[in-house]
């Protein structure tokens, strides 16, 4: 698998890029040239310069430092959301797909109910109900999105549950635990990775959207969506302000999507080794 990974250029490039971004987020205090909260009102909206490589924002804060610090909430929160949705979705999907009968009916009807609401509206409703807060945003995202994954995973499981190798395991009395975690989970792992990486992309956009609307990460904390929101106010006078956070979001989200595709190829042992 390691060899297949290094043969796949897209996988190597996107994974390296995302690891670098994550590393930058972790090392933010070392890398950032300024304190992201330090205001310098006389220097607001200054252009690109050696001291402020990406300029300053409406309060004269260093954009580059804010971008680097912004990696933490953007990437961290979306990973957390992804783990939550995929975790619950996988568990529910496995249970529904493998055991069938009453558990399946219960889970899938709940999923149907969840999916019959427009997801964005539900997120707003949950956030409005629980209060404007980052934790609530994540909770709302997980609460809305798991149903979608449960359904996808169930379809994957149903493809495999009647395969002969699982029939054999059931015939000789292999424990269900082994069948679920050694046969089924690896079989759907490729789908799972694609879903998970697409989900991170979706979560980044969603968290940024909510911050942009003022429902997610709150004002002084640097977050890419919130930064876009601040830049929006000066769209006509200082359009350059949009560039850094906007491009960063596009790059990271596309990197996650491309990585999902590439990892699918890497995880499939039948893919020709070349």
């Amino acid at each position: 698998m390691v060899r297949r990974f290094f043969h796949n250029k897209t996988a190597v490039v996107t994974v390296t890029f995302l690891l670098l971004v994550a590393l930058m987020g972790v090392l933010a205090p070392v890398l950032a040239p300024h304190d992201p909260y330090e205001t310098d009102i006389l220097n607001k909206f200054s252009g690109f310069s050696l001291e402020y490589p990406l300029g300053t924002d409406n309060l004269g804060r260093c954009m580059l430092s804010r971008m680097i610090y912004g990696i933490r909430p953007t990437l961290g929160l979306s990973l957390l959301t992804m783990l939550g949705t995929i975790g619950i979705g996988t568990l529910m999907g496995l249970l529904a797909g493998y055991f069938r009968g009453i558990p399946e009916e219960l889970i899938m009807r709940t999923v149907d109910v969840m999916l019959s609401f427009p997801s964005q509206i539900m997120v707003f409703a949950v956030v409005a109900l629980l209060g404007v807060n980052v934790q609530n945003v994540i909770l709302a995202n997980i609460f809305i999105k798991w149903a979608w994954y449960a359904r996808m995973i169930r379809t994957g499981v149903m493809q495999y549950r009647d395969r002969n190798f699982i029939q054999f395991s059931r015939c000789i009395g292999t424990p269900e635990r082994f069948i679920l975690f050694r046969h089924l989970v690896p079989s759907i792992a490729a789908d799972l990775v694609v879903l998970a990486s697409l989900d991170v992309g979706w979560a980044i956009i969603n968290i940024s959207t909510l911050s942009f609307l003022g429902l997610g990460v709150q004002a002084p904390v640097p977050e890419w969506g919130a930064m876009l929101n601040e830049a929006k106010n000066v769209l006509t006078s200082n359009p350059v302000q949009m560039l850094a956070p906007g491009i960063a979001i596009v790059l990271v989200v596309s990197a996650f999507n491309l990585m999902g595709d590439a990892l699918r190829d890497v995880l499939d042992p039948k893919e020709a080794e070349g």
Binding site: R163, N164, F168, C171, G173, P186
Partner: peptide, 27 residues
């Protein structure tokens, strides 16, 4: 379960494609 075993017609789906032969026998 402890006294019965089975061999199927379609050998392509009889073995988990992600297992090596060693793991297949291990089951």
């Amino acid at each position: 379960q402890s006294r019965m075993s089975v061999v199927f017609q379609d050998y392509t789906t009889s073995a988990n494609p992600r297992f090596r032969v060693r793991d297949i026998l291990m089951e």
